[in-house]
């Protein structure tokens, strides 16, 4: 039995400790906002926060998460009103929407470290998240808007 802390809740799961965190979240716990895209840490669709880092859950063995704090998109905010989520809605970023939870999880980590990111900062922080629909320009705008919202809310 493996004990995990996810979104401030404790879960006990009976899985092989080598199982990627992604499949524990999706198949065992029903937290399907974290997406499978490539299984190789190439696309970022599976990004979650492990102790605040934007970890790719598809290559992260669940054993790494034991005793650590995991946050998934479902736990980012109680009402879906994290400044980054608000900005995503305001800019109406999504097309198909599949990659966007991973994009948001990466963007949150960027904004924690950098309150006012430039285009170059965003390029460097977000190049690990693929959007096949090509919503990158709106993601950039949404990150800048989220930074503004955060400054206002602060």
């Amino acid at each position: 039995m493996i004990t995990l802390s996810i979104n401030k809740k404790t879960y006990n799961v009976d899985v092989d400790p080598e199982t990627p965190l992604l499949w524990v979240l999706r198949d065992e716990l029903g937290l399907v906002g974290t997406k499978y895209g490539c299984g190789l840490a190439q696309c970022g669709a599976c990004t979650v926060h492990l102790n605040g880092e934007a970890v790719r859950s598809c290559v992260t063995k669940v054993s790494r998460a034991v005793g650590q704090e995991v946050v998934t998109i479902e736990g980012l905010s109680e009402k879906g009103d994290h400044p980054v989520q608000k900005a995503w809605l305001e800019i109406d970023v999504a097309q198909c929407g599949y990659c966007q939870t991973g994009q948001i999880m990466s963007a949150v980590v960027l904004l924690k470290a950098n309150k006012n990111p430039t285009d170059a900062d965003i390029d460097a922080a977000m190049a690990g998240n693929i959007c096949r629909c090509g919503t990158y320009l709106r993601i950039r705008d949404a990150i800048k808007l989220a930074a503004q919202i955060e400054r206002k809310e602060a």
Partner: peptide, 14 residues
């Protein structure tokens, strides 16, 4: 690495 792009986000212990 930097903010959302740390080496350890993808490169694991094992």
């Amino acid at each position: 690495g930097i903010n959302s792009m740390k080496c350890g986000n993808c490169h694991q212990a094992t």
